[in-house]
Design a binder for these strands. Structure first.
Lengths: 233, 233
DNA sequence: TCCCGAATGTGTTTATTGTCACATTATTAA
DNA sequence: TTAATAATGTGACAATAAACACATTCGGGA
């Protein structure tokens, strides 16, 4: 995998996929980032980062889609969230104990940047505005995830499936017609139910005209009803 | 409640309950904190902070014990964590959208400090080391909670009760003999099961000699077994 | 001391969802 | 094109824990 690591052909200064936080850096600081980072490409399905590994670099998802997940007792997989481009991976872990607590794998072909960790830390300590931006983005991210999770845990299976569909529609793809990036099993892993149950509910939703379903392609027909189902648990 | 807010009789400079983050501040910065904060006392049971309220001040739990919780559909209460002294309440919310996402209530008599929010933000932007400390502590806190939650969601009721007992023993009270700070209902709310089920499991554990149980007083007799039950789900 | 309400314990019933076993349908590679 | 494999759908059954209904105990005034 290390062979994939190459010097970026574009500099950070004119990167179209720069993070919100990095946008507050000045030219000199950005030069530092540029000199201490590398770009890499990953194919769909490849693992980006393994839980348990020591944090050696900050990883920034420049383009593509990934899943954040953990394995329970080496078997059952739990997907924590779908990560969109322009996101740092594993930041919360970074500032905790320096061990990555979650794994990440590419759901689409991805471009990622490895950023030197001590340089990143220096930036935080040097530039309070940068620190603040990082704080805001990790906080928001955490809050969103935790909330999604909290509410999920109170819901029955219909509510959970409805939630997941709205999640994809609103947060991930921002359209009512989309293609699930993974098989049913992983859809089930995202909402914490069995594959069979998830399947059954999807089919029920289809038969009731709430969604249109063909393989992995989904169209949300009745958002209001879905919203209601999500609310009522 | 605002009547309780009084000027601190001790200054922040010689506060014995100062936070880890504030420990990196210099005398001048500490003076700023001192000039922009107030102390308040709360009795057991009183609400410190309501979910949904706008963040007007940072709240620091100087002494005492509190619970962090949310209400689901105005009815069921879910306790997210027990908060020990020397902790900022609701920091993750602060940097997100300025709305408190969780409620806090005193489980014991508490002393809290209200700290002016804009001054706090300025400190972060002025002092990178302070920002870094805040980042570390919020990250660690988040990670711990999230992890506890993730693992809980995979466990059956026996594992959950075992978890909670170990949580109190190791994290909260740091001894094998302790007094639950709340009734069975709230113990159940913490682990996300019904009161009846929680009761039953506690009694089962007692009958099997794993714990000693008398009202709210609990002694952990067989830590290893409890650990095993927690592991095996 | 007694009374009252809250907290706790207990048996039974019921709803929900996971598991198992297998049929069917896609997808991929030879 | 076909064989092999993965993904998906479906029915029957079992396990788990919630809900309900009520008995018992506890704790703090009057």
């Amino acid at each position: 995998m290390l062979d994939d690591v190459i010097k970026k052909d574009t500099s950070c200064h004119d990167c179209k996929d720069i993070s919100c936080a990095a946008a507050v850096l000045n030219v000199q600081e950005l030069g530092l980032v540029n000199a201490n980072s590398h770009e890499s490409f990953l194919k769909k399905g490849e693992v980006i980062l393994h839980e348990g590994s020591l944090t050696s670099h900050i990883i920034y998802l420049k383009t593509g889609l990934a899943k954040e997940y953990i394995k329970h007792s080496g078997e059952k997989e739990q997907i924590l969230q779908i990560v969109k481009k322009h996101t740092y991976l594993g930041l919360p872990s970074l500032f905790g104990d320096r061990i990555n607590h979650y794994s990440y794998a590419a759901l689409e072909d991805c471009t990622i940047c490895y950023i030197d960790i001590s340089m990143f830390n220096n930036l935080i300590k040097m530039n309070g505005n940068f620190a603040y931006e990082i704080l805001v983005s990790t906080s928001r991210d955490n809050l969103n995830n935790f909330n999604r999770f909290l509410h999920q845990s109170q819901k029955k299976i219909f509510g959970r499936v409805a939630d997941a569909l709205l999640y994809f529609s609103r947060i991930i793809y921002e359209t009512t017609q989309f293609e699930l990036p993974f098989p049913r099993q992983e859809f089930a892993d995202l909402i914490g139910v069995s594959r069979e149950s998830a399947t059954r509910v999807l089919i029920k939703f289809k038969s009731e005209g709430i969604i249109d379903l063909k393989g992995r392609s989904i169209t949300i027909v009745n958002v209001d009803l879905l919203e209601q189902i999500s609310q009522n648990g």
